[in-house]
Design a protein around this nucleic acid. Structure first.
Lengths: 240, 240
DNA sequence: TTTGCGATTATGTATAGACATTATCGCGGA
DNA sequence: TCCGCGATAATGTCTATACATAATCGCAAA
């Protein structure tokens, strides 16, 4: 009865399939996803396997399960939009908001001493530098400055980021094993204020995220959000 | 073979047991927890049950699992993002800084509609309200406004908080099972600026933390930090 | 002493079946 | 029509077992 023809484990494949359909909007919030026995038939596996997948998705807040009624795609609660991984496109699609982005700058440049310090890479090392403005419903929501390590992600060198912003593009390609986050508050200077269409001096949240893959530096993102439009929300269980 | 004498499900009981031992410090980070077959014998259940529990704990970052080597208690990581700042006294001691705090306000008051909404408690419910200024090396570092649910923590009613600030005091007494965090950036108004000895309009980090214990609301803390003096740092691994 | 390799061991994934729990549906009676 | 209750269907939990995978240990050969 074992499924054939897949490198990945069945559990992960089922999970990916369902997540993809939810994230793409194909299965909108409230949509009743197939019953366990249906998925079981579709993938030719036991109910335990399907059950474990759905339980995981429920634990992550992606679906809501109810006995007898089945499982439905959960409403996108901003509660659950944790400081985990922000993918603007995914979040926007789930919330039904029009999203677009604009690449303001893109170049392969040697990094300065400060960046070298932060990322643990040698100073002067060349990385891909990309600045992106994220816009939702015609309002600028975030400005992102990103460094991408071409030694770890060589295929980024010639990527124009036409279809997906750098964050989404990377997320699809490079799994990360460790990340460091720093959150702080800064006042917007004139340039930043103009970019985000806010008043100079407005308090902004700055989120810095650096990710590594098995010890190799992948990318650094510094994302600036207008403080009055954004907040980071997280729900934790002890040490979760 | 089914376990007897418990209302709760075995899975939850095993999980609670292990979490309790980790949270209490009995099993410190690095401690090798019992092998699956040992827990299996201890609880008289199948390995699948134990395995599911440990997998859940691993997904939540509480333990690290390695084939052949067994499972060990993980180094505190994602929680650090928020907890790092939670205990000022501890943080200061580790950094060798002189720390003191001042209770600016302390009263049992009915909560307003907004607080009722946030905490999920009935409006007008009486809670202990405490405002604390945290000072390190004679420089104000944070202003904390706290609500404490006297229904859950009755012993707080007459606590003067002479020795420990409310956060530390609570942490020692009331274990929490769920927490919600919100981080945002705001500009300091005149009053806040004066309290923190900063310029009016300075960007500040505001951290709101609400905690529950088995569904019962425990406390809400709203802590304001000068943005140029503080940042939240966290290390994460991917969520399964 | 060092290296290589096989045995061992613990976890990872999956199966098939069992029984418990609970919400809903639909039928029959008031 | 409305209410109550039993049948039904879906998830929740658990067992016992099987084989895969990976890391370590220890022994033997170089």
């Amino acid at each position: 009865m074992k499924a054939e023809g897949s490198m990945k484990h069945l559990h992960q494949r089922i999970r990916d399939d369902i997540e993809a359909r939810i994230m793409s909007g194909e299965w909108a919030p409230g949509y009743r996803i197939p019953f366990e026995h249906e998925l079981m038939a579709e993938y030719g596996c036991s109910r335990m396997t399907v059950n474990k997948v759905l339980s995981t998705l429920a634990a992550n807040g992606l679906i809501t399960r109810r006995r007898r009624a089945g499982s439905v795609v959960a409403e996108p609660s901003s509660q659950q939009a944790v400081l985990q991984i922000q993918d603007f496109a995914l979040e926007a699609a789930r919330a039904g908001i029009e999203y677009r982005f604009k690449i303001l700058h893109r170049a392969v440049e040697p990094i300065d001493a400060a960046a070298a310090q932060r990322t643990g890479q040698p100073a002067g090392m060349k990385m891909l530098c990309v600045s992106t403005l994220h816009v939702m419903d015609d309002v600028p929501q975030a400005f992102e400055q990103r460094l991408i390590n071409l030694a770890t992600v060589p295929e980024a060198k010639d990527e124009p980021f036409d279809d997906d912003p750098p964050g989404t593009w990377l997320l699809r390609r490079v799994p990360w094993t460790d990340a460091e986050h720093i959150v702080r508050a800064v006042s917007a200077d004139g340039v930043m204020a103009k970019r985000l269409q806010i008043q100079t001096g407005t308090a902004c949240l700055v989120l810095e995220r650096r990710t590594w893959q098995a010890g190799a530096f992948v990318t650094e993102a510094r994302i600036t959000y207008p403080g009055d439009r954004h907040q980071l929300v997280g729900r934790f269980s002890p040490v979760a």
